[in-house]
Write a protein that binds this DNA or RNA. Sequence first.
DNA 1: GCAAGGTC
Length: 856
Amino acid sequence: MRTIMMVAEKPSLAQSISKILSKGSCTSRKGLNGSCWVHEYNGVFHGQTAHYKMTSVCGHVMSLDFIGKYNNWDQVDPAELFSKAPTEKKEVNPKLSMVKFLQVEARGCDFLVLWLDCDKEGENICFEVIDAVQPVMKGGVREKTIYRARFSSITEPDIWKAMNQLGEPNHNESLSVDARQELDLRIGCAFTRFQTKYFQGKYGNLDSSLISFGPCQTPTLGFCVERHDKIQSFKPENYWVIHVKVFRAKENPLTLDWNRVKVFDKDVGQMFVNLTKTSKEAQVESVTKKEKSKQRPQALNTVEMLRVASSALGIGPQYTMQIAERLYTQGFISYPRTETSHYPESFDLKGTLKQQTNCPFWSEEVKTLLSNGINHPRNGVDAGDHPPITPTRAASEEELGSDGWRLYEYITRHFIATVSQDCKYLQTTITFNIGTETFTCSGKTPISSGYTAVMPWQGIPLEEALPVCQKGDMFTVDEIKLVEKQTIPPDFLTEAELITLMEKHGVGTDASIPVHINNICQRNYVTVENGRKLKPTNLGIVLVHGYYKIDAELVLPTIRSAVEKQLNLIALGKANFQQVLQHTLDIFKRKFHFFVDCVSGMDQLMEVSFSPIAAAGKPLSRCGKCHRFMKLIQAKPSRLHCSHCDETYSLPQNGAIKLYKELRCPLDDFELVLWTSGARGKSYPLCPYCFSKPPFRDMKKNVGCNECTHPSCQHSLNALGIGQCVECDSGVLVLDPTSGPKWKMSCNRCNVVVHFFENAHRVQVAEDICNACDASMVMVDFSKTCNPLPADETQHTGCIFCDPIFQDLVEIKHATMRHPMHRGKGARRGRGRGRGRRGPPRKPKDKMDELAAYFV
DNA sequence: GCAAGGTC
């Protein structure tokens, strides 16, 4: 029997498609990566009985990156990223072993049917799957073996239609995505690295660890700064309006609106007032009554959900998507990433509504709709991806938690609204003539609330009823005055407005819009103010103004759409992949060089808001080269700067840095500093020079003395390492020499901190090794007054894992069970032991020799 | 450490 492997873009789709095609009879099992499912059933393929295996990936399998050595910021000129630097495809998430999983499932299969989403990204993933799977499938030389299923919705008729009309994957569309990936990578990384290094080397208080650039995030920031500029350049203007009040006996006075609304010249205003004042009476010119309606909403898609969540619920896009994904995986709502605002024909509107019958918040409205009949939903856009976002089962606040419930409540109310009637109201307008001028007064009275019954915030507010009158009726003029007013500046851009702008200009997608907004917040280009308004920071403003000054195209919203236009030519087969890629890269390469040449133009703006790095920070520790004090710059990213040598040294982030007893690194004479993390109180010393430039080949970048393999330095791993970490595979528990009297050792790789020998006078790592577990022996001195040791002993040396006397004094407890000592000899792991187990350390050579060797 | 696009 032939076997057909079928692959969807996500596990949920594999499940629904296989359910349809197997008519509910498939068996399901989890794949070896623990994330994807395999659904199997028998059916017919090409007229013969066949075995089907339907599975999925989780989005893209591969992602593009530069080959390793081009990811070293210190060694690579960003300009090289435009052409010289080779790229390679890497697995997006190596932990998922997606390629291996696909190969295991595809081995020996006869046919491959690709059910990836029907957009360009999906087409690209098709080829990622093909590349992974083809080598292990049965070689069908004479027969076509790879098919593409194209579906426009996840409904039975559509899925069956797709299965019966299998086509071929579209290589051109896939190539257009390959081109986009390469362009985004080369352009984004080149600009980001250049800017970051350039500005961070010059200014001390930028307060952002990364000065990033990207074809989506930069225009996103541009929108926010554009509004800021409008506010700044706003000049209030005076204008004048005529306020008129009229009344009739025993009735409340009416305030009227002037038909000319306002004038910008006081004298002209006064003239109109005089003309109005020629009459003491207001005559009714006409009374019109018009039935109007407020339309029920279209079915909910992602972008609209994000807008409402931000503006009405006060929940940001990133968090909204997190909540929505949780609601989706728990089965409360349908798939939350969709551009479609139109229910498919087969959508069970009534069934979805019935589920909500018993929810007290809207049961009345639901019951009325079910008994009176639901309204046909408005036409929306069918993007062919997923149905609109709807509730899929009833829920309560207890089940969902506060924010989950608020979003679910909105989604549900929105759904009910889409099948409700429009809101109808009567608009009455009374037109008055006073002198030569015309004034009106209007009011709304609800006729039927329609959908606003479930979306009360959109309802017609109750107003005082207008007086009943007819043409020719006379009112007495109570008051006529000229009122001076001022135009007011616009407010900062709201997140909801930004989402609309991004969508309009094609910046980002429904799934990536939240990411871009999050990026510009995290990079400290904008802050989120009350009412989720986005206020640009000095840094954000200077960056955008700098781009405007040097090359406005870098920040204009068209930068994305212009490139996408080119990419579309590839997708349509009208242009060659290489030519488009080269052409676009050439343009941006020139833009890059121009930007580099003109960056002083941005400097002039930076200088106004930021202080030079040499003027920032407080003196902390001495430089090993000039022996003058270096300054600690606390602003993000925290770093040490030697103004004499004009060098900047990076430091670990998210912790406190202080001087470490004026001790020095034996390799380079830099004074050591102590890094302390907040939460768990982990700390270690580090040499500012070695931290960026590891002295030994086996040492990674950005590590402290607790990972240094120096053979004789008293602060190194060799001197203070005790034994293999009890949690992680690669770490070593290192004594924290500053931790007494609450002594502890912490893993130099993971977050494990082990407390031991509380109140001991002194704790030292001894020369000897435990025979049983290879850990370093530990020597402990207790003071006489506080001595837990037996008899009169105040000093004891032993293995903290194996020594019975130490057992109660070490807080390892359950973690001990993971230690090799307690798992039998077979379980011993070879790596990462304490000192003495790392082989004879190489003798350190002269520091500069070491460095030279390191970088060869 | 970087982009944007999928998805978990």
